[in-house]
Amino acid sequence: MSKNIVSVNNLSVSFDYQENFLSKKQKIKAVNNINIKIKKGSFFGLVGESGSGKTTLGRAILGANKISTGNVIFHDDDRDYDLTSINSKEMKEYRKKAQLIFQDPYAALSPRMTVRDIIAEPLEVMKITNSREETDEKVREIASKCRLNLEHLRRYPHAFSGGQRQRISIARALVSNPKFIVADESVAALDVSIQADILNLLKQLQNELNLTYLFISHDLSVVAHVCDIVAVMYLGHIVEMAPSRDLFSNPRHPYTKALLSSIPSIDPENKSKAIELEGEIPSAMNPPSGCVFRTRCPHASQDGKEENIEMGLEEVEPDHWVDRCGVSCG
């Protein structure tokens, strides 16, 4: 049994919000009481619609968002980093070990830097290498692992297609030799055939470099294909979490079921039996009390008893966690 690399305990992240400078400050809870453990070497998937808090959770784990309550612990081989009590020196070390791959490879790369400089920048900023030769050596090594043409290192990003740019972003994230990668919608902007290529590359690099991924995506079929374990988020809460095969063959929460049924099937005869959800995801400024999904839930009761439920995951089968409210109605 492999060890955990990241533990997230009762994590909440809220943002201050003020409608205008005279009105009262409000708190928006983007991520609410999350508990997850990411095993070393796993491909952990996080799915949900826009506004569900996936990105905020990913950024909080990287220390890029302030944690309001709870904590995030990164377990390195020899020591633990607790992100709530980390000092700036330790933070610098942590940054070498945990990196982010962005969604849009057109926006993530500076147009004024050569590919070599883009990939080398983390090495220089984090002072990992001591000489230019050493930097160049590392850049070439990672670039060839990411299947970039070494002759292209002197060019600028505008000369590359979306798929090649995404490979440059991946190389940049991996050059500091991190152990944990957050890939935030990293294939969402790509065409299907390039998407397949990048997903295969991520898998291959995982094996070669012993990486652990937190893979954030809104595309369930992509997540089903690459991830070992998947958590489904809705309005800041995890409503279901299970090994991916289990989740996709046996979804328990009504939201997961609706999400799965909404994927348009490629078989024209399999006309959609989509469980159509009413309305849209409510605003995080004013989330429903009790079960956050109750306003769209097809099983919500008439007497509104879901208003007083406290959300929280229960283990219904080994490793298969479902929100309490969803256990009964699912």
């Binding site: 299907v192 055939s193 998407q195 997903l199 294909h225 991916s244 095969r245």
Partner: peptide, 17 residues
């Protein structure tokens, strides 16, 4: 195009770019 598409009903199929 079809082979590159992740198929939710067949998770074992490799993605072929």
């Amino acid at each position: 195009l079809i082979n590159a598409l992740p198929d939710i009903n067949n998770l074992d199929a490799p993605l072929t770019p």
